[in-house]
Design a binder for these strands. Structure first.
Length: 643
RNA sequence: GCCGUUGUAGCUCAGUGGUAGAGCACUUCCUUGGUAAGGAAGAGGUCAUGAGUUCAAUCCUCAUCAACGGCUCCA
């Protein structure tokens, strides 16, 4: 048979040669490091013989698929350890994930806890040393059912019930046998470094109505050094965590008496908010948006009209009763904006109408979902609604996307994914407004704009808003959690429910399309993200403390006040460290507080009307006149905002 | 909301069945110091809240609240 390698080289091997043998024929080193093989595009065990002409890619730790095979095998090793330590334990699924693997188990009467992890880890290491082979066995469905019936394992039987006969394989290593599609690494011995990370509850089949299983997360590496590096990397990431930095830099805080998920913005946080709003207002004004303002609550009838009450009620704070009326805190700004549009008596000549507001919304997020600033119950959205005709839709949608990209340049956001969420046919009328032709038409329009604008995106079904498809910008927190940073949604349903119309050129009433957009997401999540993105080192324009003046001794406090005041007069956020401390100490503290510029002033500066400039993270920049310094930072701010 | 863990001074964290400690921060005094921590003294806590066990609870038990790691859900 002919084997074709990724570099297009072709070599001849006898039929039935295994991938591992082929690896050996190429180099001993490769044979030692190879974990799995990709045969004709399918990832397979190394020990599986190849029987026909095929393309072959040998996967190592450097390949994503090599890693996931390694971790998948590690999950089996953990299961083997668990079964040895806790006889009778039952297993659901144990897949590899982005960083490691997990296994969902039902430990029966025993409750697994954090304290059990070191024992399990030890057992895994012991079993790994035995270097047992992962043996693949094809089996018919009857035998498989018999095996798990005898084992009294309802979970695996449930898995089996969804499999077709003939596709069933078992893998055995040591005393542990699992129903598994594979593939696996050849043997347990290459799993050298093991760390079980944490233990958590996870609903069976991901459904909260089902029983909760115990999920154990772990990670393994071929070398101890790699595990050590991974753990060190996690420690580093924790230092960027916005919850830690937010406290250290005095940006926000929570208070038990105020309530969970209700952040208090400290003065530094308020500066961040004001700068973001300033940027948004400038940008939106240039793009033809008009600002509006709306109250924080509304009567239930409006949310019946909007559809929030049937579709969204569980995410809203319960109503309050006033004068026989039910009032709800608003979870979104759109209904209020629709009311404003409705009051405008618009003609096609007025469209598009773009209404913008940094509106404060309240959402009743379940307690377990709260997460620092990233997931809160009171939030201020960079919201706007664009009402336009069907012909205008593509241009408007494109313009919104361009605004996103402009913001990403300003904030240097490079790692993100645009996620296009569409409806699912089965949930029409339940999760989604029941009008399939409109869904399909709108989704096509969005897809066309994305393709025409050459914006890379991924498409996911059954993730849309109840009123239309949406595009979310996904980013990751320091500790690797994924978040929707910004959102851009099409609404073809709610304007009609509100009876919104405009008069078209034929003097007929027509319903506008509405685009909801929030490129800067919410203040809460966006700032949470920015803290981690910049690791607290905000760019000058955004920095809550732009300049601190550090007098060498209190003899120069007067001059320091003069310098600081002059900067304040030009809208620079400058203040003074007048403490009775040595200059080294003042510098150290200013550096720790991540203040962008330090101006050291003493005898020399006072005499010449100058300042000695030091930049955060960079050090001494030398002496310059007050006016030169002002000019320099003014132009730095300009440059940062005009990208 | 569910599973698991945690809750001690402003912050980070020790600690004990006999009503508490460190470092940093804070206050005062000394020091007037040129690019990442000068010295001394002092002040600070119903040990998350509520009940129970006990002669005695910060420590043991239960409940509640909150935070954290996940699940479900989402900007």
């Amino acid at each position: 048979m002919k084997i074709t390698f990724p570099d297009k080289n072709v070599r001849e091997y006898p039929d039935g040669t295994t991938s591992l043998e082929i690896a050996k024929s190429l180099s001993e080193g490769l044979a030692r490091n190879v974990l799995a093989a990709k045969v004709n595009g399918e990832v397979r065990d190394l020990m599986r013989p190849i029987n026909e002409d095929a393309s072959l890619e040998l996967l190592t730790w450097n390949d994503a698929e090599g890693k996931s095979t390694f971790w998948h095998s590690s999950a089996h090793l953990m299961a083997e350890a668990l079964e040895a330590l806790f006889p009778g334990i039952k297993f659901w699924v144990g897949p590899p994930v982005e960083n490691g693997f997990y296994y969902d188990v039902d430990p029966g009467n025993h409750t697994l806890s954090q304290e059990d992890l070191p024992r399990i880890e030890e057992k895994m290491k012991e079993l790994a040393k035995k270097n047992n082979a992962y043996q693949r066995k094809e089996i018919n469905k009857e035998e498989a059912i018999k095996y798990f019936t005898e084992k009294n394992d309802e979970y695996k039987l449930d898995l089996l019930s969804n499999l077709e006969d003939g596709s069933i394989t078992f893998y055995t290593q040591g005393d542990f046998t699992d129903l598994c599609r594979g593939p696996h690494i050849p043997s347990t011995g290459s799993i050298k470094a093991i760390r079980l990370m944490n233990i958590a509850g996870a609903y069976w089949k991901g459904d909260e109505k089902n029983k909760q299983l115990t999920r154990i997360y772990g990670i393994t590496f071929p070398k101890q050094k790699e595990l050590d590096e991974y753990l060190a990397m996690l420690e580093e990431a924790k230092k960027r965590d916005h919850r830690k930095l937010g406290k250290e830099l005095e940006i926000f805080t929570f208070d038990e008496e105020v309530g969970p998920g209700l952040p208090l913005w400290l003065p530094n946080g308020a500066v961040l908010i004001e700068e973001l709003e300033r940027l948004a207002k400038r940008t939106e004004q240039a793009a033809g948006y008009k600002r509006v303002r709306t109250p924080h609550l509304a009567k239930s009838s409006m949310y019946l009209t909007s559809g929030h009450l049937p579709y969204y009620e569980e995410s809203m704070f319960p109503a309050m009763q006033i004068e026989g009326e039910k009032y709800y805190l608003k979870p979104m700004n759109c209904p209020h904006h629709h009311k404003i549009f409705g009051s405008m008596n618009a003609s096609y000549r007025d469209l598009p109408i773009r209404l913008a507001e940094y509106g404060t919304c309240y959402r009743y997020e379940q307690s377990g979902e709260l997460f620092g600033l990233m997931r809160v119950r009171s939030l201020q959205m960079n919201d706007a609604h664009i009402y336009c005709t069907e012909e205008q839709f593509a241009d408007e949608f494109k313009a919104v996307n361009e605004m996103y990209l402009k913001y990403f340049r300003i904030f240097n956001i490079e790692k993100y994914v645009m996620r296009f969420s569409t409806h699912s046919k089965e949930k029409l009328g339940k999760k989604y407004v029941d009008n399939e032709p409109l869904w399909i038409k709108t989704e096509d329009m969005v897809r066309r704009v994305l393709i025409e604008s050459k914006i890379p995106y991924i498409e996911v079904a059954d993730e849309a808003a109840f009123y239309g498809p949406k595009i979310d910008v996904q980013v990751w927190s320091a500790i690797g959690r994924e978040f929707t940073l910004a959102t851009n949604q099409v609404d073809f349903a709610v304007p009609a429910r509100f009876g919104l119309t405009f008069r078209n050129a034929q003097n007929e009433l027509e319903t506008p399309i509405c685009i909801h957009r929030a490129p800067l997401g919410t203040h809460e999540r966006f700032i949470g993200f920015l803290i981690e993105h910049y690791a607290g080192n905000f760019p000058l324009w955004l920095s809550p403390k732009q300049v601190i003046v550090l007098p060498i001794s209190d003899k120069f406090n007067d001059y320091a006040r003069l310098v600081s005041q002059e900067l304040n007069n030009y809208d620079i956020r400058a203040h003074i460290d007048e403490r009775d401390e040595k200059i080294g100490r003042k510098i150290r503290d200013a550096e720790t507080r991540k203040i962008s510029y330090m101006l050291i002033v003493g005898e020399k500066e006072k005499e010449t009307g100058s300042v000695a400039v030091r930049k955060h993270g960079e050090g001494d920049k030398g002496n310059m006149s007050k006016s030169d310094f002002l000019k320099m930072i003014k132009s730095e701010i300009e440059d940062q905002l005009n990208k």
